[in-house]
Nucleic acid binder design. Structure first.
Lengths: 220, 220
DNA sequence: CTAGTATTCAAGCGACTTGTTGAATACTAG
DNA sequence: CTAGTATTCAACAAGTCGCTTGAATACTAG
């Protein structure tokens, strides 16, 4: 049993294979924020450099990421926006058909934020009118790689002591890396405890970008 | 390094794992046509029953398929339309970023059909006006599970001797299982050799259904 | 050139995956 | 009940995967 169809499926199986490790999924989530070098990724995930390198090779062979060498560093990035869409599709299937995912989401994520997340289009509209403060709680390098126009960047681990930087009396819309990134949930929880009005943006930066919405980035 | 995010990624990795075997991808393609029993699948793929059963278990654990027991048979089906969308997303990534897939598609698929495939919306419109004949070249059971309204079913292996059943002077739009199913390509090639005007429908039945277009199915 | 650093390569080992085989289970027909 | 069939389970060998370790490569700084 072999033919062109089987050959194509054999190739597509390599993509599946690339997606079959939690470590690689995390690497993809990080790369979806912007390009990163091997040891940045190594530090962010806690894995050894060699190990991260091997995982990146595998992702590269599956066509999901591409590398760019600059001096001593190799900067990896997602191969295209379609990769983000694919990951979103996988996440959607997981959320609707894997009981375990549903359970974790309900337990750790939804419990922190009783409110519905705000759709991207609505946020864009209200931000343009100056009605809300958009808050990006990711690390500065990720913010620099691209963020919602006009967003304020206060990394999650500094939010508690930098609350005064937030304009008074305006609702805050927080976002971070994506649907499984806890930071924006934590941000909303913290802000509400401090008496501010806060909600989460639906999904994170990669999805915003893929939806074709405007992205602002810091000059290199 | 572990937390809710890692747990979710661990679960999603099971979906990746399920997609990491060509055999399982083929099973999913077949199940996307409609529900099937284990030994139907075994015969269609040529693998042993036990082997197919094991693969189905894995797909089930990943939440991609669900089984329904009826008498002696267990009929498996896709867990939902989002699974079809996910597979389409994977295929799109493969086609745009894996050189090997591009090569195979160009070599075996595109070479048979120099014409652009027809988008689903256009086919529906023209079929309703009676301007084209929609031809389903899949096996009868798959046709019975759901087909384009008004389509004619002539399985590929019978097409050569049943050409007369096609209405004269009308363009034929052929379709089959999906983008990597050769049958509709072969059908178009055959029809054109015989002097008929023929083109392929963009994608196959599962994508048509998922796009929310009307589906007709035979009474049980 | 040399020293230093980011990345990749290579080897090793335990754990897991794949397909096969043969038996066990679950159901229908009679 | 018995016979027969669809499916699943269990055990096996061959192969692959995943992480670690230590060395090799490729580049910059000086």
């Amino acid at each position: 049993m072999h033919g062109p169809k089987q050959e194509v499926f054999g190739q597509l199986a390599r993509i599946g294979n690339a997606l079959s490790s939690p470590v690689r999924l995390e690497l993809l989530e990080l790369l979806a924020q912007g390009e990163r070098s091997v040891d940045q990724l190594s530090r962010l995930t806690g894995a050894t450099t060699a190990n991260v390198s091997q995982h990146l090779q595998k992702l590269k062979q599956a066509g999901l990421i591409a590398g760019r060498k600059q001096g001593l560093f190799v900067f990896y990035r997602l191969a295209g926006d379609d990769v983000v869409s694919m990951l979103a599709a996988v996440a959607r299937v997981g959320e609707s058909h894997l009981a375990e995912v549903e359970r974790i989401v309900r337990m750790y994520f939804r419990s922190r934020d009783g409110f519905e997340p705000v759709p991207a289009a609505e946020v864009l509209q209200r931000a343009r009118k100056g009605l809300v403060t958009v808050l990006d709680v990711r690390p500065p390098e990720e913010f620099a790689s691209g963020h919602v126009p006009g967003a304020l960047n206060i990394p999650m681990d500094q939010l508690a002591r930098r609350l005064r930087e937030l304009p008074k009396g305006r609702e805050v819309i927080a976002y971070c890396r994506g649907p499984f990134c806890l930071m924006s949930f934590e941000a909303v929880e913290l802000l509400r405890r401090k008496g501010l009005e806060a909600r989460r943006l639906q999904d994170g930066m990669p999805e915003w970008r893929t939806a074709g919405l405007p992205v602002e980035s810091a000059p290199r």
